[in-house]
Nucleic acid binder design. Structure first.
Lengths: 191, 191
DNA sequence: GGAGATATCTTATCATTGATAAGTTCGAAT
DNA sequence: ATTCGAACTTATCAATGATAAGATATCTCC
């Protein structure tokens, strides 16, 4: 029967997924600067215009990748929803550290298209999850607004994630003579 | 004597400052995407290669601009050094909100050159100021490491700044029915 | 199971970008 | 006054994202 045809040139099979995979690989291996349309398609072994039917343009492709990021973050957050903000905060920051490029992309509103439907949905879902998580926590200080509490916790967690990715927390660690790992520092800071 | 020659084409006089001014104007008016070498030189009314003698390349120009940012942030922080972390946090976030483009640029390690001497110096000075400010504060919890305390405070303040710039705090405000301004929210969150 | 319609992918081209080399103009130092 | 060097321009290059036109495979409908 010979059905297992490789289908070389045309009709890749699942080029959409392949392009997202290539983009992610480039993103994590070479940084967000390497995320060009040509670099991505080259990595996937297709022509530079092959992404158009699936994503329209580069912003569309990156938006789809960021969408994956929001979904993965939500999925990572879900198991600790009942465990309170400390555990969830650690999960949030760990996700950022383990996927620095992807996490960075998720907040680069200048390269992704915030109007993208799927992206907006995934982003909103994750945000909703975060606020719910914060609201559910025990130590709600009555002296603070609910919004204030949300902003305070989300801000802290997000800031730690961003600073960790930028390597600025390592600088903080090495300057002080204290013997501790980044993980310990984060656990301490999130207390 | 007619000394007030306009000196049109050659030897601008202070092109370095003029280019930084143009870059900053473009940055705040049209966003970080508009910060191209040609756009900046066009705005300043010079040729696209005029920036080379002063900055080498685009990264050099943007690094110099980011350096200005770190210096201004340090200058804004200085008057509140004795007032504790609450006031200083507000100053930090206000600086970010009033100079969103510049603040964003200061943490875009992919477009600026972290090896730039002046940038590294200004950045280190500001960081030093921040850690000193946090260390001086009264409510040092003994259960936390010094590094942990630094990370916690810097993280929170920085996260709030980043989220505010991205408009995500406004989203947080509007979702909740509470009647409060962004400034009030920040003041509350920094408590 | 055959034919036309349709989506996918390629090739070719365009305007624009950052970098660079070579040439021009000005100021400064000897 | 002349030379030297820095500042600036013009011209050119490779590379980018977008797009139009063409080729090919799959799908639908009869």
């Amino acid at each position: 029967m010979e059905r297992q045809k490789v289908m070389k040139n045309y009709h890749h099979g699942d080029l959409r997924a392949a392009l997202l995979h290539s983009a992610r690989a480039l993103l994590e291996q070479q940084g967000i600067t390497a995320l060009g349309l040509r670099a991505i398609t080259r990595h996937a072994g297709v022509s530079s215009a092959a992404a158009v039917p699936h994503f329209g343009n580069l912003a569309g492709l990156l938006s789809a990748l960021a969408t994956v990021g929001y979904e993965e973050l939500a999925a990572a957050l879900e198991p600790v929803l009942e465990k309170g903000p400390h555990a969830a905060g650690l999960v949030y920051v760990r996700f950022a550290i383990h996927n620095p490029g992807l996490f960075t992309l998720m907040f680069r509103s200048d390269v992704i298209d915030r109007g993208d439907t799927a992206l907006a949905a995934a982003s909103a879902r994750t945000s909703h999850m975060l606020t719910q998580l914060i609201d559910n926590m025990a130590d709600h200080q009555p002296q603070r607004t609910r919004s204030g509490t949300r902003a305070a916790h989300w801000g802290k967690v997000h800031g730690l994630a961003v600073l960790a990715i930028d390597g600025l927390l390592d600088a903080l660690l090495s300057s002080q003579g204290e013997e501790m790992s980044l993980e310990e520092l984060l656990d301490d800071a999130l207390r």
